[in-house]
């Protein structure tokens, strides 16, 4: 792993730590993404972390269709299908946008498909953001029940 990648890993770990301490307030942007807005020396920025799943294109089977197999395949979810787990690969996208101007400017984006060595660091950050949002939800529910 290069020094630059090491540095990136350290910064992601720091973001995770700040999230754990409650210094970064994440909110749910999509069912699979969390976002947070943070003021920095160079202006206000929004960071988004998204977890997606990639399924490599399966080769098309040239054999005659087996009706029973097709039915089984249609009735089972993709993850349950034979080899489904092996074909699936989760990845993370981490995006930072500058909010200073009239429109958002993409400042950086990291894709763990291109930097797989950062996968685990982003997985920990994603879980921390998820816990942070769950904790907020729990607080709201606690207020509601008095």
């Amino acid at each position: 792993m290069s020094n630059e990648t090491n540095n990136l890993g350290e910064y992601i770990a720091k973001l995770q730590e700040l999230t754990r301490l409650g210094d970064i307030g994440w909110f749910k942007a999509t069912p699979a993404a969390y976002a947070a807005i943070r003021d920095t020396a160079s202006g206000r920025k929004r960071m988004t972390i998204l977890r997606a799943t990639r399924t490599p294109a399966a080769p098309v089977d040239k054999r005659p269709p087996d009706t029973a197999a097709l039915l089984r395949r249609a009735l089972s979810s993709p993850a349950q299908s034979e080899g489904g787990e092996a074909l699936r690969r989760a990845y993370f996208l981490f995006l930072v946008e500058g909010l200073g101007g009239p429109s958002k400017q993409t400042e950086m984006m990291i894709d763990t498909r291109e930097k797989p060595e950062l996968y685990e660091a982003f997985e920990r950050l994603f879980e921390a953001a998820k816990s942070s949002v769950d904790a907020q939800s729990a607080r709201i529910l606690k207020e509601l029940v008095g």
């Binding site: 999509t30 699979a32 993404a33």
Partner: peptide
């Protein structure tokens, strides 16, 4: 597509993320 569906009408997700997914 469901992974980039905005959680609420006020939230938005950057087009570049939608493109990558």
């Amino acid at each position: 597509l469901d992974t980039v569906k905005p959680a609420d009408p006020a939230a938005d997700i950057a087009a570049i993320v939608v493109y990558n997914v």
